[in-house]
């Protein structure tokens, strides 16, 4: 296997010691009250165990993902050299754009939400939350979204390295210790402030700020929402989990989807239970993010009218 096909190093593996040290630092500085950091031991254990489980689950699907990427690249349209600076600039933007759509899909369609929801199921927002990763992301096919990059001609090694860079970047933004970065950086980059909004369950903040590294995609595609000082983020999912059981953390949405499929009355309902937005139900008795936001907006408007 050539150096263009397999990266010489794994960015995420190399970063793991730094992840551990930064979590230690956040806890110690939080204990000393030098930064804002809240940790609950069982929540922390669940987040970190999900991260470890994700590594193990990922090992089972990594070869398939790599093989598919390499196979597509061997049928590429252009030859893009790994040594060209412009190729790295191009893949930086294109991979980040791909990540935006992957992430948006992972929130707006239940089949992918079922794999991603565990990352949002903590009621905390700290560096351990960043490591609360999926166990089922490899089997839902979301990795197919990166194959067009290989088809265009980006070597698989470049794609895997850039995916790793994006994941490592996203680690440090899972913190309440950093309030705001300088305005120009807040305008361009995904920052702790923007990503706190993404993890919040307030109706105003639901399904917003899907960015990986660059927040420009949210600004461009209309999903950007700034963090407001008068509305603190409440973290977690719309209906928070009832315990810290890891199996429940990893699989509860898949279990709920299977139960719903058992009640589907026709193929259309079954398809909507799988590929509809999270919270969809045939009789509208459950709430999607759009419904929750619309109700919240109606309440806000009603209060404003009453005040007048």
């Amino acid at each position: 296997m050539g150096s263009m096909e397999k990266p010489p190093f794994d960015v995420v593996t190399l970063a793991v010691p730094a992840f551990v040290l930064l979590v230690v630092l956040e806890i110690v500085l939080g204990r000393l009250k030098l930064i804002r950091a809240q940790y609950e031991p069982r929540d922390t254990a669940a987040s970190l165990a999900m991260g470890l489980g994700s590594s193990i689950a990922g090992a089972f699907t990594a070869a398939l993902v790599a093989a598919a990427t390499i196979w597509v690249w061997r049928h590429r349209v252009f030859d893009i050299p790994m040594t060209a600076w412009w190729a790295w600039v191009a893949i930086f933007f294109l991979e980040d754009l791909t990540y935006y759509w992957f992430h948006r899909l992972s929130h707006e369609r239940r089949f992918w939400w079922a794999a991603h929801v565990n990352h949002h199921s903590s009621q905390h927002y700290n560096l351990s939350t960043a490591l609360r990763q999926t166990w089922t992301g490899g089997v839902n096919g979301s990795w197919l979204l990166w194959l067009p990059l290989a088809l265009v001609g980006f070597p698989p090694a470049m794609i895997f390295i850039q995916k790793g860079v994006s994941l490592v970047y996203q680690f440090w933004i899972h913190t309440e210790a950093v309030r705001r970065l300088p305005a120009p950086l807040e305008y361009v980059l995904n920052t702790p402030s923007h990503h706190r909004v993404h993890h919040a369950r307030n109706p105003r903040y639901l399904d917003r700020n899907y960015a990986g590294i660059l927040i420009i995609w949210d600004r461009l595609f209309g999903t950007f929402e700034p963090e407001r000082d008068d509305e603190p983020c409440r973290y977690g999912v719309v209906k928070n989990l009832g315990d810290f059981n890891l199996v429940r953390v990893a699989f509860h949405e898949w279990m709920a989807m299977a139960a719903d499929l058992g009640t589907a009355r026709n193929p259309k309902e079954a398809l909507l239970y799988i590929f509809g937005p999270p919270g969809w139900s045939p009789d509208g008795s459950r709430d999607t993010a759009d419904v929750l936001r619309a109700r919240w907006q109606a309440r806000v408007s009603s209060r404003a009218t009453s005040a007048e």
């Binding site: 551990v20 110690v28 809240q38 922390t44 970190l48």
Partner: peptide, 20 residues
Amino acid sequence: GSAVSILVLVLLSAWARIAR
């Protein structure tokens, strides 16, 4: 190594008593 790190971090978070 990761499993050992998890144990240490969880114990550290319990020691810190910084739950909300």
